[in-house]
Design a protein around this nucleic acid. Structure first.
Length: 602
RNA sequence: GCUGGCAUAGCUCAGUUGGCUAGAGCAGUUGAUUUGUAAUCAACAGGCCCGGGGUUCAAAUCCUCGUGCCAGCACCA
């Protein structure tokens, strides 16, 4: 196998450049290594551009980089291109690839380049971002493109690729700019890897919580109800109740007090908090007797009112209030996505009022709480520290102090994190906890936000040691983030096969004949006594059919009862994965369920 | 919100170039069957073809405006 590029000074250098500059280095072969795929996919993007240009001669191209999931190219044509055109473009790409054009490289000055592409406003936009006085042009057949490389030596090496998605994308990622067409694709060095990748995507699609959620009757959406307003069905209701129950205990153990604020509050309060000015476009408002009210998009103001209900001493701090707070946010229609992004959701929200000396220990405690929950569900997660956004309240000084406090809490405890510049909430910086869905998209779930601003705006205080009035610090935090999003992610994570402690139904009971119904009911009642939900499959169907139906519900445990079981007070258990069967006495069975339900504590 | 696509029964989908009474499977109901580990048989019921408006002798099908959904962008738990 010949090299497709070389590694020189830890940089990928294509053969064209290596030859021109006389560089030498370790050869990069055409395989599925990171470096190789980088070159291959970038060249595939160019091949795609070449095909698009030949099919739509007026096409103008912006940028075509490689990304985590392959590559894309942004371009513009007068013709409307839809999903159905992808096949056509792929076909054209293959026919070019067969011609085995060499990919040639040459350099020209920036001025020459500007002259060469003077009719192409997209290329001119690209060049505006380049500071060098020389640019390189890559040429394959008739097609030329301004590009930094690196590229393959010949397009004939591109054989195993697929165009996956088409959509719009703003020029330069800015919604003020015009929208271009973006086509995504993927390429591999061999056929098997491409096939495996496509199978992986299909597998992920099967886990999609929107599909699984409707199959399992967890939740639904209805056009007549409105976009982004989920409807929780009985099975989903049970799953949620389990999560809520577990979490309730976990909060109580850590000293949180349950409270509840109203669903809407007078707009004046939202003006005091700054939500009216900074978050108003995401809020829903209504008028009652000529007074304007805002439906809460967050729970903090309610909790502030709880705090204000009595005077506090420094001895009381930290004070922790928590609430499964229902919030409404006017999200853009295009942002809505199953349970991951909705307009009404319930946060596992809490606010910690503490002294500035307590910030660090409180942050650490919350991070630890997060870790406990995420590891129970076997989630990989990452933490991001987000700094001051464009729209923000409070002085730079306060912001600096808060960001430093967050970072130092993390640093001192050697917790890894990334920085999200400008990603903070309008009232303070935050640590976001992000987890990944079935197809690799990252979603923000938990969040820990430090806030010096709201205590000031609401003039919160506590009595210090010298009976002086001191302003507390507020920490906003949610661990799951929202029940909606978290349950969506959980559904994909487990592909609907929830573990016993969280499953909507713990046990499916299948009586063999009508004469066994009484014992089935008896078992179901005993299960309720140990906090387990069950369903009896005694419909007028064949036994086989009922077992099949029960298994398809993804219930963690299936028990079958017939004459033998009724007589011996036992159950026949069928494992949902191995289909193996074994018998347990009723007591053993109940104890097993009880253990499995109780083994999890956050 | 933007770009592109889609919308037929509770669900998954057929429905020809505009043409007679819009079909199927699953789910549902009823009846027969009472089953020992992944689909018993039969009958019945189920539709303002997403909603307005238009074109046409004629619209599920064409146009238009909404609504909702899908992919991504931008925005965010």
């Amino acid at each position: 196998m010949n090299a497709i590029a070389i590694k020189h000074n830890n940089e990928i250098i294509d053969l064209q450049t290596a030859k021109e500059k006389g560089f030498e280095g370790e050869p990069i072969l055409l395989d599925n290594s990171k470096e190789s795929l980088e070159v291959l996919r970038h060249s595939t993007a160019h091949l795609m551009a070449q095909a698009i240009k030949s099919l739509y001669p007026d096409a103008k191209f912006y940028v075509g980089p490689t990304v985590k999931e392959g590559f894309y190219y942004d371009f513009k044509t007068e013709t409307e291109i839809g999903e159905s055109d992808l096949k056509k473009i792929e076909k054209q790409m293959l026919s070019f690839a067969k011609k085995k054009y060499e990919i040639e490289k040459y350099e020209i000055s920036m001025d020459e380049a500007k002259e060469k592409f003077k009719d192409d406003h997209l290329k001119l936009a690209v060049m505006q971002r380049i500071t060098d006085d020389k640019v390189s042009i890559y040429k394959q057949g008739e097609f030329e493109d301004l590009c930094r490389g690196p590229h393959l030596p010949n397009i004939g090496l591109i054989r195993f690729f697929k165009l996956t998605k088409i959509s719009g994308a703003y020029l330069g990622g800015d919604s003020k700019n015009e929208m271009l067409t973006r086509i995504y694709g993927i390429a591999f060095a061999d056929k098997e890897s491409l096939k495996a990748h496509m199978e992986m995507l299909a597998e992920a699609e099967k886990r999609d919580h929107r599909k699984v959620g409707s199959e399992m009757k967890l939740f639904t959406f209805r056009e007549e109800v409105g976009a982004g307003f989920p409807i929780w069905l009985p099975a989903g209701g049970r799953l949620r109740a389990r999560l809520e129950g577990l979490l309730y205990k976990a909060h109580r153990k850590r000293g949180y007090e349950p409270v509840r604020g109203p669903e809407m509050l007078r707009s004046d309060l939202w003006k005091t908090s700054g939500h009216y000015q900074n978050y108003g476009e995401n809020m829903y408002f209504t008028k009652i007797d000529d007074v304007e009210f805002g439906v809460k998009p967050m729970n903090c103001v309610g909790h502030i009112k709880v705090y204000e209900d009595e005077l506090h001493s420094y001895r009381d701090l930290p004070i922790k209030y928590f609430e499964y707070g229902v919030v409404h946010r006017h999200e853009f229609t295009g942002a809505l996505h199953g349970l991951f992004r909705v307009r009404e959701f319930t946060q596992d929200d809490a606010h910690i009022f503490c002294t500035s000396d307590q910030i660090e220990e409180q942050i650490i405690e919350v991070v630890d709480f997060v870790d406990k929950i995420m590891s129970t569900f076997e989630f990989d997660y990452k933490m991001m520290v987000s700094t001051k956004p464009e729209k923000a309240v409070g002085s730079d000084e306060v912001w600096d102090t808060s960001i430093k406090a967050l970072k130092s809490a993390m640093d001192k405890n050697e917790l890894p994190y990334e920085i999200d510049e400008g990603g903070g909430a309008f009232y303070g910086p935050k640590i976001d906890i992000k987890i990944t869905d079935a197809i690799g998209r990252e979603w923000q779930c938990g969040t820990i936000q430090l806030d010096f601003n709201l205590p000031e705006r609401f003039e919160l205080e506590y009595n210090g040691e010298n009976n002086d009035k001191i302003q507390p610090v507020m920490i906003h935090r949610a661990i799951l983030g929202s029940f909606e999003r978290f349950i969506g992610i959980l559904t994909e994570h487990y592909a609907g096969e929830f573990p016993m402690f969280i499953a909507p139904t713990q046990v499916a009971i299948v009586p063999i004949a009508d004469t066994h119904n009484a014992y089935a009911k008896e078992l179901a009642d005993k299960l309720i006594d140990i906090n387990a939900d069950s369903e009896i499959y005694n419909k007028n169907d064949s036994l086989n059919k009922r077992i099949r139906t029960a298994e398809k519900t993804r219930v963690p445990m299936l028990v079958i009862i017939g004459d033998e079981e009724v007589e011996g007070k036992t159950v026949a258990i069928r494992d949902r994965r191995t289909r193996e069967q074994y018998n347990l006495s009723e007591d053993e069975f109940l104890k097993l369920i009880q253990t499995k339900i109780n083994e999890v504590n956050f």
